[in-house]
Nucleic acid binder design. Sequence first.
DNA 1: GCATGGGCAGACAGATCTGTCTGCCCCCAT
DNA 2: ATGGGGGCAGACAGATCTGTCTGCCCATGC
Lengths: 206, 206
Amino acid sequence: MEDRHEAPVQPATHAKVRILDTANRLFYNEGVHSVGIDRIIAEAGVTKTTLYKYYRSKELLTVSYLQLRDNYVRDIVARLQAQTEDPIERLHLLVEAIAGEAEKPDFRGCPFINATAQFSDPQHPVRLAIAEHRRWYSEQVEQMFRNAGHPDPVQARDDFFLARDGAYASANLGDPATATAALRRMTGRLIGQASGGQASGGDSEA
Amino acid sequence: MEDRHEAPVQPATHAKVRILDTANRLFYNEGVHSVGIDRIIAEAGVTKTTLYKYYRSKELLTVSYLQLRDNYVRDIVARLQAQTEDPIERLHLLVEAIAGEAEKPDFRGCPFINATAQFSDPQHPVRLAIAEHRRWYSEQVEQMFRNAGHPDPVQARDDFFLARDGAYASANLGDPATATAALRRMTGRLIGQASGGQASGGDSEA
DNA sequence: GCATGGGCAGACAGATCTGTCTGCCCCCAT
DNA sequence: ATGGGGGCAGACAGATCTGTCTGCCCATGC
């Protein structure tokens, strides 16, 4: 049986969190459209009534799932910003966070890219949540490069995003270590442009 | 052979092609799991019997869809290889083909990356088709860099893939022109490493 | 000790999706 | 002209998915 004596004290963080965590795991691992509500409630140990009480529809649950993912990333960025004031160091930490994520054995690609593949309408709430996440993320990266004194922070931001998206996709479809190695090469060069000041062709690596 | 007795009045054998074309369009635009068989037969102007005669299941139709996409890419590569013997020029043509695709208004991301997001089991026939496509593609790019005399064709291939996957993802989720600009910067640098850094020139292998 | 209320549980309903079955029509050969 | 065959057409069946409805249990207030 289940432990049912843990709930009464805090009803807010009771079944609601369990549902979202389960949805997060299943939606991410198997895809939103491949996972039914029945699977979620079964593995979360709740019933439909409970799920539909907290999340009025699967669509809203999906949006909540992506918002949870969004919060993950925001926490990571906030943490690395608290870790150091040096913008160069922050960029390196961000790259390592991305690489570490992509190398985890249960990595299944970027949840936002994956969700985009499943919701084609750009005006769908899911897509709006994704767009907002990327807008915020883009701003963060650009600001980091700007603070690092990169000569063209906008371009660096675009290159960084290219490398990040590519690393996520390549790590998922191919070999993660290969993908993260390429990610580190690319971002290392970008960050080097910031610290060095002058870009000029050719990365001088060991 | 095939269009021997189907040609006359009704494009009979065209039904098979029409189905695949429609599946291609709908699966690509809206996602495999979001499109039902009913949609496909309606827009292809055929009935279920016809569809299930040529493609025994939706799964096989999905595999056929990805094989069609695979053939697209192979045709592109074959065409640019027929266009010039210069490996550098071939790489540039490949980049432009990728960029041109990503900038098309109906671009919806890489069909293989999108399909991966919807089929989580790596042993699924769909995933096997994807893996085979990427294996082939990877080999082609590596060979191009090798023929171009790049000092590290394997690394260049990995970087190229990172840029390609990133460009597809970024073009789909964000601004295509921004993504392709970053793609051209990255690949231009890679190709420049090949033309500039001549490594033991003159090795011509099969 | 008893009534009350809120959240939990499983059964239920409507819609949709994949895949099948039987009849019909057109084309071709004789 | 006529018989045969193959592909086309829509109805049908089983399964699944989302979302709803009605009891039940436990914690709390008097």
